[in-house]
């Protein structure tokens, strides 16, 4: 199920994350559509993927967009983001769909969606 021409090499993923599985800072909290914003510029010698994230996130960027830009699986990007968050280099704007987890979406948010769609 992998498309041709892609670097699926687990060794690359291993290298990017230093062989770690989860960052200590709740990488799991990054939703696909959590919007990430840089709080600092890349520093010289910084790992290139981290530097790329900081550059891309000068404007808010969703986790899934970062994964696409970097050509890395979402789960690997989450680990990198956990590191950046722990270092205070990014902030994360998590989705808010309803007050209660797993509940139906908030009608006020749905109204915003309707207005936005009608303006398309």
């Amino acid at each position: 199920m992998s498309r041709p021409g892609r670097d699926e090499d687990p060794d690359r993923l291993y290298t990017v994350t230093g062989g770690r599985s989860r960052s200590g800072t709740g990488a799991d909290t990054f939703d696909l559509v959590t919007l990430v914003v840089s709080e600092s510029a890349p520093t010289p010698g910084m790992q290139s993927e981290l530097a790329s994230i900081l550059r891309i996130c000068r404007s808010p960027t969703a986790v899934v967009e970062l994964a696409s830009d970097l050509g890395l699986p979402v789960s690997v990007v989450r680990i990198l983001l956990g590191d950046l968050l722990a270092d205070g280099r990014i902030t994360a704007r998590h989705p808010r769909t309803s007050d209660v987890a797993d509940a139906l979406p908030d009608p006020d948010i749905l109204k915003q969606v309707l207005v936005g769609l009608r303006n398309l």
Binding site: L32, V33, T34, L35, S59, P60, T61, R93, P95, I109
Partner: peptide, 11 residues
């Protein structure tokens, strides 16, 4: 780029 105030991603 998204607007700098973009804060809520929906799916």
């Amino acid at each position: 780029p998204l607007h700098s105030s973009a804060a809520n991603g929906l799916k």
